[in-house]
Design a protein around this nucleic acid. Structure first.
Length: 294
DNA sequence: ATTGCCGGGTC
DNA sequence: GACCCGGCAAT
């Protein structure tokens, strides 16, 4: 029995990326989904400059192309957003923008998506599971949902705030495990053509390490709701088949991991305790050195 | 033990 | 705000 359940679960591409919770399936809460760029007629599997799709035999998922940082923010800011393959029966709603079609069977929904949105033929063509990303199951029961939300305080607006992240230095976007990926990379031009990076100017998930030593930089970001990050600014938001896959988020919300110590010698070491008057003020105040930046 | 500096205090 | 320091983590 358990093995059968595992087997069926393992076939779901959704399961892999959502270690934490199954989030709300309310479609209106998912305006962040980006356009799955799949021009009709295009196979959408090449031209990503380096990303070579593999033959994809291990799972319905295809390798994940590098997502734009914005997408990574979404990933951080949002726990798992969808669930599927739950034991309960439900309705299946198409998440494609301005579609919202509701069908009562997953297979019907997959067919709908293949035909209508993906421009594929009716035959499942050993369906790669891509359709799975474009619809959600409208649950009838709430049991599985509340499982994932058990850690949240009902009614608390801050509850949806993701745990504080370790400083997001301008690192490469965390290599998205190829668990969940859009079938085709949403084109950077769309995002970059936006007037301004208003996607999430201040959300915790979007926080980028401040230039130097503003000691307050890492403080006080608890009030920002992750919803702010999800404000759709995409001109033509289409459901993006990306679900949250936070790679090992810090366990403690509010834990503020220290900056790794730089190797630069600071005033204290350069001038010594004897010449404290030569120190920069920050060093004198036991703050992050302003003179010898890392 | 030393160093860097966060967090929090006082003025 | 400026200024100071306890205490922690990294070294």
């Amino acid at each position: 029995m358990a093995a059968a359940a595992l087997t069926s679960l393992s076939t779901s591409p959704l399961l892999l990326g959502a270690p934490a919770v199954a989030f709300s399936t309310e479609p209106s809460l998912e305006p962040w989904r980006e356009a799955p760029v799949r021009p009709p007629g295009s196979s959408g599997s090449s031209g990503d400059g380096g990303w070579v799709p593999t033959s994809d035999q291990s799972s319905p998922s295809t390798p994940s192309p590098p997502l734009p940082p914005e997408a990574a923010h979404f990933l951080f800011g949002e726990p798992a957003l969808r669930k599927r393959k739950s034991s309960l029966q439900g309705l299946f709603q198409c998440l494609w923008k301005r579609c919202g079609k509701v069908l009562s069977s997953a297979s019907g929904m997959q067919r709908h998506i293949r035909l209508v949105h993906l421009g594929r033929q009716a035959e499942p063509e050993q369906s790669d599971g891509e359709e799975d990303f474009y619809y959600t199951e409208l649950d009838v029961g709430v049991d599985s949902l509340t499982d994932g939300l058990s850690g949240l305080t009902p009614g608390s607006p801050t509850a949806s705030t993701p745990p504080a992240l370790p400083r997001l230095e301008p690192l490469e976007p965390p290599a998205l495990p190829s668990l969940l990926r859009p079938p085709a990379l949403p084109p950077p031009p769309v995002l970059s053509s936006l007037p301004a990076p208003q996607v999430c100017p201040s959300g915790p998930a979007c926080q980028v390490g401040e230039a130097s030593g503003g000691s307050g930089g890492a403080r006080g970001h608890s009030g920002v709701s992750s919803q702010g990050c999800l404000a759709p600014v995409h001109p033509e938001p289409q459901p993006i088949p990306v679900r949250a896959c936070a790679p090992a988020l810090p366990a403690k919300p509010g834990a503020n991991p220290r900056k790794p110590r730089g190797d630069a010698k600071k005033c204290r070491k350069v001038y010594g305790m004897d010449h404290r008057d030569l120190w920069c003020t920050a060093c004198r105040w036991k703050k992050a050195c302003q003179r010898f930046l890392d």
